[in-house]
Design a protein around this nucleic acid. Structure first.
Lengths: 170, 170
DNA sequence: CATCCGTGCTTCGAATTCGAAGCACATGGC
DNA sequence: GCCATGTGCTTCGAATTCGAAGCACGGATG
């Protein structure tokens, strides 16, 4: 286990700021969503992912892949949302194992009702102090990082890939 | 509650990328810390905050203020760390209400032992795809956002600006 | 069609989270 | 000194989290 060189001050600054801003923003958004819609951030994200899809319906797995969340946690939250009447679960006709989740009228209405406040929080906390160049740069840089993170294997085991890309990392 | 204009695509990109990168990085770091040191990310942060301080000791409140975490959660985690022998709690001589938390030898040793791997994860996932200009910009932009977020009141502290009201607080 | 493995989802238990309420000490006004 | 109010931390209950294990279906193989 070789020692790693300590991070440069700029690197530390960027790292800490990233984590702190992410946490603070998440807390703020979570609070707004709870107050205006009784939703947690995760629940909002689930509704948003389903709502975004052209059909207003998604498989559980597809939702999970879009969010940074465990599968079991998703099961739990979708159950909560279903109990609240915001989404409906139905078996997929194509694949009996799959569960298709779709927005109900209520779910779509609630999503619409909280969206505006959500955007306002993001505007007020994240975007307000930034120029449009700042925003563009931020999106560019973090977009690259995201792509990198999604591609890099979790540190020893390459993710189980469908055949086609043996990645040479074994 | 007026509608807010929807976000520009660049704004959405930046917002989503920020949240996703933060989440992914946190998960990755958490996993490394668990494997190499049996620590959660929060626990590591607590140790790091205490260790950073010149004296190697801090009041609970000061630690909480540096981290995005509830006080009760901090109590719980410090209790865990104390049970593991990594920190020690002692009443403050100045103020009987305060609790001073300090690193034990073990705590300092463990912090040193996992730090290298921690840095490596950050390097590999976050910093690897970035130039030093990128890093500097990221730190600059997010630093500004952080400052802004810490300064802006949580949304109820700056309540109604109804006409006639004593708005001297702004 | 019998079998085996991979995939999709759920269940389970243990750990962790939060806010609200509570306890103990500190500080200021009288 | 004595109370009111504020601050620092803990306790409490309820909700949420995760990974591991389990269940059920799909597709390939023979």
């Amino acid at each position: 286990m070789p020692d790693a060189a300590p991070l440069e001050p700029e690197q530390l600054t960027a790292y800490f700021a990233l984590m702190e801003v992410g946490s603070l923003l998440q807390h703020a958004v979570d609070q707004q969503l709870r107050e205006e819609g009784g939703l947690s951030y995760i629940q909002f994200q689930i509704l948003a992912v389903i709502g975004e899809s052209t059909e207003g319906r998604q498989r559980m797995t597809d939702v999970a892949d879009r969010l940074v969340h465990s599968r079991s946690g998703l099961t739990y939250q979708v159950a909560q949302l279903a109990e609240a009447g915001l989404v409906a679960k139905a078996p997929s006709p194509d694949d009996e194992r799959s569960v298709i989740v779709s927005l109900t009228e209520q779910g779509r209405a609630l999503l619409g009702r909280v969206m505006s406040g959500h955007i306002q929080v993001v505007q007020r906390l994240l975007l307000a102090p930034l120029s449009s160049e700042d925003v563009a740069q931020l999106g560019d840089v973090l977009g690259r990082v995201r792509q990198h993170m999604r591609a890099v294997p979790p540190r020893s085991a390459a993710p189980r890939r469908k055949r086609g890309g043996p990645t040479g990392r074994e």
